[in-house]
């Protein structure tokens, strides 16, 4: 991998980290309402995978989706504007953290229901295949989604119809609080093999390794060799979502958290690039996020009278809650 490529990967991971750290602060401070599911710790997965995609390829994202969306090229200003519920957000303040997506970048929604993106991605992959110009779909999900029947059904559809889709399982070892071994019989990758898919496992804390193996699997998809599966072992440095963080709920062994934090993918790649390069990129990223915060905080709020705007793409008369 060239140094330029490594620098690009580092910059993208750092952007996600800086974005998420700022968001976590804002969520805990109540500036972001509801809550967020921080991607901190898992950056190498989104960045490594998306580094192998073009603007014409598609992804489906998850409730822990900021990293995927940023790695696919979304403008952090507009992502943060969405999290603050403003009209400058991708979803004009109608989606929030779990649904923020710039669909112009081929992001087919970030989904609040675990495992829901796989079948949607398969439908998109079917259309991509019919178009015949080598576009592919990547569907991201966590290890918890491997217990959702609809995702396993989607594997089957993708396999029988030989669809150009890469299923990326971000195995962060916890389905909210349930440990992997308590919730998953067998292994994720072996299950995928059962559907006749090529399945690989990779160290999800090594962005270069993720990028390399993704590149091979995506190439297969582009060549019409059917779906593939990639299991990335990774870890979320913080809890499941910001509210648990705020409440101080931690169900993981503190030593385990420390061990994984020592394998921080950003620090690891930074060490290869050297302090000067890292300092320069970090400074630039910080400036980008400062600017995003400034932009989002000054963005206009939607008008309450428009609360049901966009409910239908076509027309339908909707009656109000009270008729006097």
């Amino acid at each position: 991998m060239t140094r330029e490529h490594q620098m690009a990967l580092y910059r993208s991971m750092k952007l996600i980290r800086e974005f998420e750290e700022r968001c976590l602060d804002m969520a805990i401070a109540g500036e972001i309402i509801g809550g967020i599911h921080p991607y901190i710790g898992q950056e190498a997965v989104a960045v490594g995978v998306c580094s192998q995609l073009t603007e014409r390829d598609f992804i489906t994202s998850t409730h822990r989706g900021h990293g995927h969306v940023l790695a696919k090229g979304a403008d952090p200003r507009r992502l943060l504007a969405e999290l603050l519920g403003t009209l400058e957000g991708f979803n004009k303040g109608r989606g929030g953290s779990m649904h923020a997506a710039d669909m112009k970048l081929g992001i087919l929604g970030a989904n609040g229901i675990v495992g829901a993106g796989g079948a949607i991605g398969s439908g998109a992959a079917w259309v991509a295949k019919a178009r015949g110009n080598s576009e592919v779909v990547v569907s991201f999900f966590g290890d918890g989604a491997m217990s959702q029947g609809v995702l396993l059904e989607a594997f089957n559809l993708a396999a029988i119809w030989s669809l150009p889709i890469l299923f990326v399982c971000e195995n962060n070892m916890y389905a909210t609080s349930l440990k992997l071994e308590s919730g998953l019989a067998g292994s994720a990758a072996r299950r995928a093999e059962g559907f006749g898919m090529v399945a690989r496992t990779v160290d999800g804390m090594d962005v270069e390794a993720v990028a390399d193996v993704t590149g091979e699997l995506i190439q297969r998809c582009r060549e019409g060799k059917g779906p593939a599966f990639l299991e990335c072992s990774t870890y979320r440095f913080f809890g499941h979502h910001s509210v648990l963080e705020l409440l101080g709920v931690e169900f993981r062994d503190p030593d385990e958290v420390v061990r994984w934090r020592e394998r921080d993918p950003i620090v690891a790649l930074g060490a290869k690039l050297g302090d000067d390069v890292v300092a320069e990129i970090d400074e630039a990223v910080k400036g980008t996020i400062d600017e995003a915060v400034e932009f989002a905080k000054n963005a206009p709020s939607p008008d309450p009278k428009d609360a049901l705007m966009y409910l239908y793409s076509g027309t339908a008369a909707v009656r109000p809650g009270v008729i006097l």
């Binding site: 079948a119 398969s122 439908g123 998109a124 992959a125 079917w126 609809v150 989607a154 559809l157």
Partner: peptide
């Protein structure tokens, strides 16, 4: 369940 959401993806 999968083919219903498959339809959603194709529609998108």
């Amino acid at each position: 369940q999968a083919f219903t959401s498959f339809g959603t993806g194709a529609a998108m």
